[in-house]
């Protein structure tokens, strides 16, 4: 069943790492030392790689080979992208896309 202890550990670990990304730069560079360009560069560019990584991560258990060959995922991603390009409204696209996916997964495939 639900493993609360494990969930608590995950929340704490992710909380500490997230806090470190917010506080460590200040502790290290807060006294006016020159911040290495390379660190500034990574802080700026890594976020643009993170979303692609997360999308693949979220879909890691989906199989292209077995039926239904990720069809619900592709259709729902199309819905999300299409509505977002149309309205530029995150919540609207997330809700429409998720409902579409749930209907596809529960009723169609």
């Amino acid at each position: 069943m639900t493993d609360y202890r494990h969930a608590l550990i995950i929340i704490l670990v992710m909380g500490i790492v997230t806090l470190a990304t917010r506080i460590l730069p200040v502790l290290i560079f807060g006294r006016g030392e020159k911040i290495p360009d390379y660190i500034v560069y990574l802080g700026k560019v890594v976020p643009y790689t993170a979303m692609g990584l997360l999308i693949v991560y979220c879909l890691k258990d989906v199989s292209l080979i077995e039926a239904p060959h990720a069809a619900p995922e592709f259709i729902a991603l199309f819905v999300v992208s299409g509505t977002y390009l149309w309205k530029r409204n995150t919540i609207f696209s997330v809700v429409i896309g998720t409902v579409a996916y749930m209907l596809l997964a529960q009723l169609v495939f």
């Binding site: 999308i55 979220c58 729902a76 977002y84 995150t90």
Partner: peptide
């Protein structure tokens, strides 16, 4: 069932933006 897709949808909108 399928509600986890909200994460994928959220990250997709950020990716596009």
């Amino acid at each position: 069932t399928g509600i986890d897709f909200a994460m994928t949808a959220l990250f997709t909108t950020v990716f596009i933006q």
